[in-house]
Computed example of a mutant assay.
Amino acid sequence: MKKIREKHSLAMRWFHWINFPVLAVMIWSGMLIYWASDTYKIQIGNNLVFHFFPEGFYNYFHISRRLAEGMAFHFLLMWFFALNGFLYVLYTIISGEWRALVPERKSFKEAWLVLLHDLHIRKSTPPQGKYNAAQRIAYTAIIVMGFGSLVSGLAIYKPVQFYWVCWLCGGYHFARIIHFALTIGYCLFFLIHIVQVILAGWRNFQSVITGFETVKEDKIVNDLANNHEEAH
């Protein structure tokens, strides 16, 4: 017998769907700012491997000569990004959602099993609660990355007023490298996250929109038992 149960609370869905467009526009506006001084590249000796980014990239996305526009969007949306992130972390602590999100000691081992299963190398399904081990690691990492972006962003934005933040980041130039590296990390996370959503299927995606999922009654009993074990 199948039943409908709540999987994602309204608050969690709001935080998720607010953060997605805010972060996407921040990445876009950050690229407009970076174009003014696109100094980063991968080089072995005197041989250039890759330059962030090729000229064709800027031309295709019409990024050139839009520094002021990029700064305006970036500095405005950073407050929404910071507030949404703060409320999200606060909610997970107060509601107890952190228990389902924070990686456990066994999560790193189980994450490998999740990867093998997604690659169709391992047939048996890895342990799955509300989130599997790989999701726990990824979602916790994105919170840490968000904090890193905020701190390094402040160091770049106001290096004199927040001189101590700039110092903690290793100086202005290193803070800029951290900020850029985290942006690349977000892009990789988006890519992997979208692939995972496709692999998980429409029902999983639907639950992130509606907050509910249809499950068998025996699965509900097993999940309640797992949640009871996690709480203790």
Score class of each variant (00 low, 15 high):
Ile142Trp: 03
Ser149Asp: 07
Arg136Gln: 14
Arg136Gly: 01
Ile156Gln: 10
Gly129Ser: 09
Lys158Arg: 14
Ala155Thr: 03
Gly129Ile: 00
Thr140Arg: 00
Ile156Glu: 02
Ile143Arg: 04
Arg136Tyr: 02
Val144Gln: 04
Tyr157Thr: 05
Phe147Val: 15
Gly129Cys: 00
Tyr163Ile: 10
Thr140Ile: 02
Pro127Val: 09
Leu154Ala: 11
Val151Asp: 00
Ala141His: 07
Leu154Ile: 14
Leu150Ile: 15
Ala141Thr: 14
Thr125Tyr: 12
Phe162Ala: 10
Thr140His: 01
Ile143Trp: 07
Ala155Phe: 04
Val151Tyr: 01
Ala141Val: 11
Gly153Trp: 05
Pro126Lys: 06
Tyr139Pro: 00
Pro127Asp: 05
Gly146Phe: 02
Arg136Asn: 12
Phe147Arg: 02
Met145Gln: 09
Gln135Ser: 06
Ala141Glu: 06
Val144Cys: 14
Gln161His: 12
Ala134Asp: 08
Lys130Arg: 15
Leu150Ala: 07
Lys130Cys: 08
Ser149Lys: 11
Gly153Leu: 05
Leu150Met: 14
Gln135Ala: 11
Ala133Val: 02
Pro126Val: 07
Gln161Met: 13
Lys130Ala: 09
Ala133Lys: 00
Ala138Asn: 13
Tyr131Lys: 05
Gln135Lys: 04
Ala138Arg: 10
Leu154Val: 14
Lys130Tyr: 08
Pro159Leu: 08
Ala155Met: 06
Thr125Phe: 09
Gln128Phe: 13
Val151Gly: 00
Ala155Trp: 03
Gln128Ala: 08
Gln161Ile: 13
Tyr131Gly: 04
Ile137Ala: 04
Ala155Val: 03
Gly148Gln: 08
Phe162Val: 06
Val144Gly: 13
Met145Trp: 12
Val160Ser: 10
Pro159Gln: 07
Ser149Trp: 09
Ser152Thr: 12
Ser149Arg: 12
Ser149Gly: 12
Ser149Ala: 13
Tyr163Ser: 14
Asn132Leu: 05
Tyr139Lys: 00
Gly153Phe: 04
Ala155Leu: 04
Pro159Ser: 10
Pro159Met: 08
Ala155Pro: 03
Ile143Asn: 09
Ile137Val: 09
Leu150Val: 14
Ala134Trp: 08
Phe162Cys: 04
Gly148Phe: 10
Pro126Trp: 06
Ser124Gly: 01
Ile137Pro: 03
Phe147Asp: 00
Thr140Asn: 05
Thr125Asn: 09
Phe147Ala: 15
Thr125Met: 10
Thr140Gly: 11
Thr140Met: 05
Ala133Arg: 02
Ile143Asp: 03
Gly153Asp: 07
Val144Pro: 03
Ser149Cys: 13
Gly129Pro: 00
Ser124Tyr: 10
Ile156Trp: 01
Ser124Ile: 12
Thr125Ala: 12
Met145Pro: 01
Lys130Met: 10
Gly129Trp: 01
Met145Phe: 15
Ala141Asn: 11
Tyr131Ser: 05
Pro126Glu: 08
Ala141Arg: 07
Arg136Ser: 03
Ile142Leu: 07
Gly148Cys: 11
Tyr131Asp: 05
Ala134Leu: 14
Ala133Cys: 06
Val144Phe: 15
Gln135Ile: 00
Gly148Met: 14
Thr125Arg: 15
Met145Ser: 12
Gly129His: 01
Ala134Tyr: 09
Gln161Pro: 01
Thr125Gln: 13
Ile143Thr: 06
Gly146Pro: 04
Phe147Tyr: 13
Val160Gly: 02
Ala141Phe: 14
Met145Gly: 10
Ala134Thr: 07
Gln135Cys: 04
Ala138Val: 13
Ala155Ile: 01
Met145Arg: 02
Ile156Thr: 03
Leu154Gln: 08
Tyr131Glu: 03
Ala155Glu: 01
